[in-house]
């Protein structure tokens, strides 16, 4: 399976502030009653968006100025909680192609990389600075460059980091592990044969 080498993601940005934004908030459990991931996009951050509406406010994801944004910025421990792949799937199907945060929960991070959606880490000051630039010019183009490990907006570069293995997986087009795993099937069987509890 040849996958696209992901070295760069370019698009407009949207800032959803907050720490510990958990998977129940990214996609409330009641929208997980489904047997495919299709159509999950519209439920991304559903409750937060409807709360904002009820309060007469506009959630960033509904803000006309940020429509079509594909790079999401947020705070620390993003995606904590459930292992539900519905969370990154909902964001991806909403149109998000990369996430920049102060830190990521582990399972969410892995699930996102498997979708080919880079999750990179930036400092809280830099995230705020980028957010301020987006706010002043929502049409400004953000470019996440994985090769250079930086994100640029309006001629300013900000450094980002990403775990080496995830970086390698993305830029080499091996972000979905299934092909590699399938290549090792003979070794899998001999390993399994060595473990008594694996016997049929």
């Amino acid at each position: 399976m040849a996958l696209e080498k992901i070295t760069q993601v370019a698009g407009r940005g949207v800032y959803v502030p907050g720490e510990d934004l958990d998977t129940d908030r990214i996609i409330p459990a009641r929208f997980m009653k489904c047997i495919t991931f299709d159509g999950l996009g519209e439920f991304a951050f559903y409750d937060a968006r409807s709360f904002a509406k009820a309060d007469g406010q506009v959630h960033p994801l509904d803000d006309a100025r940020f429509q079509g944004a594909s790079i999401l910025l947020s705070g620390s421990n993003f995606g904590c909680g459930s292992s539900r792949e519905h969370a990154p799937q909902a964001l991806y199907r909403f149109g998000i192609r990369a996430i920049v945060a102060e830190s990521f929960a582990e399972i969410f991070f892995g699930n996102s990389i498997t979708l080919g959606m880079p999750c990179v880490i930036a400092s809280s000051e830099d995230i705020r600075a980028i957010a301020a630039l987006i706010e002043s010019d929502p049409a400004a183009l953000l470019t996440l460059d994985l090769t250079e490990k930086k994100i640029s907006i309006a001629d300013t570069d900000f450094p980002v980091t990403i775990a080496d293995h995830a970086h390698e997986a993305l830029v080499s087009g091996k972000w979905d592990a299934i092909a590699d795993l399938l290549e090792g099937l003979d070794a899998v069987k001999s390993r399994a044969n060595a473990l008594p509890y694996m016997a049929a």
């Binding site: 292992s83 792949e85 090792g184």
Partner: peptide, 20 residues
Amino acid sequence: FGIGTSQVRDVLATQTMALH
């Protein structure tokens, strides 16, 4: 380990997953 759905697929198909 708690895993995502793509990894459920990996384990169904290969009884393994890629981990650090």
